[in-house]
């Protein structure tokens, strides 16, 4: 079902259809908040708050736009507010490391597994080292596959601003990744 029609139907009183949107976007929103808070519990609470806030403000959503960038912006704002309250951001590096164990179980070539695991963990650590805006721009572009315009809307910047963040983010990530080989014994801790 086309997203704009779905949202129209929800606004017409078919509240149960909101479950389709929750199901469609709960995973990327939860993971965004997990990256920003470092806590599954906080991420789940904030993700829940995100969907409720989005529902409360659904009338203000422009049906010609895509829903996900709008939802993402709400989630990011809530996470920032939460971060200001808590005055800290937990590192997610350890959790990424734990994920790698289960994620890589299905791989067959042990040697390749090891290399990939090391690189993936390194990359996760490097991403965590990046400033939030660069990290989220890269995640939205290469992990969620969003077009530049939607990334701009999600991050509250213009399309050219989104392109610049991605370009600079990649360069920073590359530099961090390269430097991680010289300090491979150390695991970066948070921002």
């Amino acid at each position: 079902m086309k997203e704009s029609l779905l949202i129209k139907s929800i606004l017409d009183g078919n509240a149960q259809e909101y479950a389709i949107l929750v199901n469609r976007y709960k995973r990327p929103i939860f993971n965004l908040l997990l990256r920003m808070t470092g806590s599954r519990e906080d991420a789940a609470d904030l993700a829940q708050e995100t969907f409720l806030k989005a529902y409360d403000n659904l009338e203000s959503f422009k049906l010609s736009n895509n829903f996900f960038p709008w939802l993402y912006a709400i989630a990011a704002n809530l996470a920032r507010d939460n971060w200001r309250k808590q005055k800290h951001a937990a590192s997610h590096a350890e959790q990424i490391s734990q994920q790698m164990d289960s994620f890589l179980e299905e791989k067959t070539a042990v040697e390749e597994q090891m290399i990939v695991m090391m690189d993936t963990q390194r990359l996760a650590n490097c991403l965590n080292e990046l400033p939030h805006d660069y990290r989220e721009a890269l995640i939205l572009r290469y992990h969620e596959g969003l077009p530049m315009g939607d990334i701009g809307k999600a991050l509250g910047v213009s399309t050219s601003g989104a392109k610049m963040r991605i370009s600079r983010g990649i360069e920073k990530l590359r530099a961090l990744f390269q430097s991680s080989f010289s300090t491979s014994s150390q695991v970066p801790k948070g921002k």
């Binding site: 709960k26 995973r27 990327p28 939860f30 993971n31 997990l34 599954r40 991420a43 789940a44 993700a47 959790q95 990424i96 994920q99 790698m100 289960s102 994620f103 690189d119 993936t120 990359l123 996760a124 991403l127 890269l138 995640i139 572009r141 290469y142 992990h143 596959g145 990649i170």
Partner: peptide, 12 residues
Amino acid sequence: TGMIASLPDEEP
């Protein structure tokens, strides 16, 4: 970018 695409997500 390929590695970013393959980063595992956690389930809510």
